[in-house]
């Protein structure tokens, strides 16, 4: 019996999200009186693997192979299922990000394991195995019982946090059996955004809506994002209009994020928008309409003109940074 956590890497590196997953896995392993094994697929060096020890991962299984540089759903799901069998894992943990959403359901079928997807915390009961998650696009919580002996969880980002618990990580190579049938999709081209804080990773997000009035008014939003080390985002009409790239659109049909701080400038706060941002720890709204629904979701608000508030805000943050 043990807990397996799939630790995805980005160009050989882990992210804060990886350490959150490891911390979460460790907490569950404690509840079950067992240990955590991490599974890494692709080229990750031993120092990076050992960094998982700080968050309670006692063993890292390393799988490498020239065809495993990019995500191939079939092959990766097969590797993870074999590793889970090899380690006799009864809890398998993924991030609820694009790769977790791709892989968890496939591993589920291979192992007949029920999935709690987008879970927001540790089990409230081990028997029956019950986990909390948000449903109805963030409008309510559900308690999900997983009835199968092997359980799969995908953790909603930023819902557990990072907690240290230092152990020594031993590294083992693992060689799964893969066949040609596992590689029926092929990545032909990759284009990456570099040198920018990614929206999903950002602790602070500066977002603008239709109230910003046009692409030419985004300068101050970007300036504030730079100043705070954050990322920029927008509402759907803004990306539909082409004022901002589609990757920045948050909401039910865009990205679902949970930063520590979310600024909404000129965003009305439609329910579909809130579905993507309501898990933020702190929401600040600037809107000229006192009745805008965004103020019901916000923690701090200014009723006013975003174009006037932004330069003042930038000045005040600069003063704070200088102190």
């Amino acid at each position: 019996m043990s807990v397996l956590v799939y630790t995805e890497n980005w160009d050989g590196k882990f992210k804060k999200l990886t350490y959150e997953l490891a911390s979460y896995a460790h907490e569950i392993a404690n509840m079950l009186n067992t240990t955590v094994t991490a599974l890494s697929i692709g080229d990750v060096n031993d120092d990076e693997l050992k960094s998982l020890g700080r968050y309670g991962v006692s063993k890292a299984l390393k799988v490498t192979g020239d065809k495993l540089g990019e995500l191939v759903n079939q092959a990766f799901a097969s590797v993870i299922s074999q590793a889970a069998g090899h380690e006799k894992c009864d809890v398998i943990i993924f991030a609820n990000n694009f790769s977790g959403k791709a892989l968890a359901p496939m591993v589920s079928v291979k192992l007949n394991a029920g999935v709690g997807s987008g879970v927001t915390g540790v089990p409230s009961s081990l028997d029956p195995f019950t986990v909390p998650k948000k449903v109805f696009t963030g409008k309510a919580y559900a308690h999900v019982v997983i009835k199968s002996p092997v359980r799969i969880l995908t953790l909603a980002q930023n819902s557990f946090g990072i907690s240290e618990s230092v152990v020594e990580t031993t590294i083992e190579s693992f060689s799964p059996e893969l066949t040609g049938a596992d590689f029926k999709t092929k990545v032909n081209d990759v284009s990456k955004v570099t040198g920018k804080v990614l929206l999903n990773d950002a602790e602070i997000v500066i977002s603008g809506g239709r109230g910003m009035k046009g692409a030419e008014h985004w300068g101050p939003l970007e300036e504030l994002a730079n100043l705070l080390g954050g990322a920029t985002a927008c509402s759907r009409p803004v990306s539909d209009e082409g004022w901002r790239p589609h990757e920045e659109h948050t909401g039910q049909t865009g990205k679902i994020i949970a930063p520590n701080l979310y600024f909404a400038f000129g965003i009305s706060g439609a329910i579909q928008h809130l579905a993507g941002v309501s898990s933020s720890k702190v929401i600040v709204a600037v809107n000229k309409d006192p009745d805008a629904p965004i103020f019901e979701a916000a923690d701090y608000g200014i009723i006013g003109n975003a174009h006037k508030v932004l330069p003042e805000l930038i000045k005040a943050v600069e003063v704070l940074k200088a102190e």
Binding site: A113, V135, G138, H143, I146, S148, F295, I303
Partner: peptide, 18 residues
Amino acid sequence: LTEMISFEQLPAKAACKM
């Protein structure tokens, strides 16, 4: 393999500080 046994509303949010 799974069953949703109960549901809850989100806890009410404190009023927005203006």
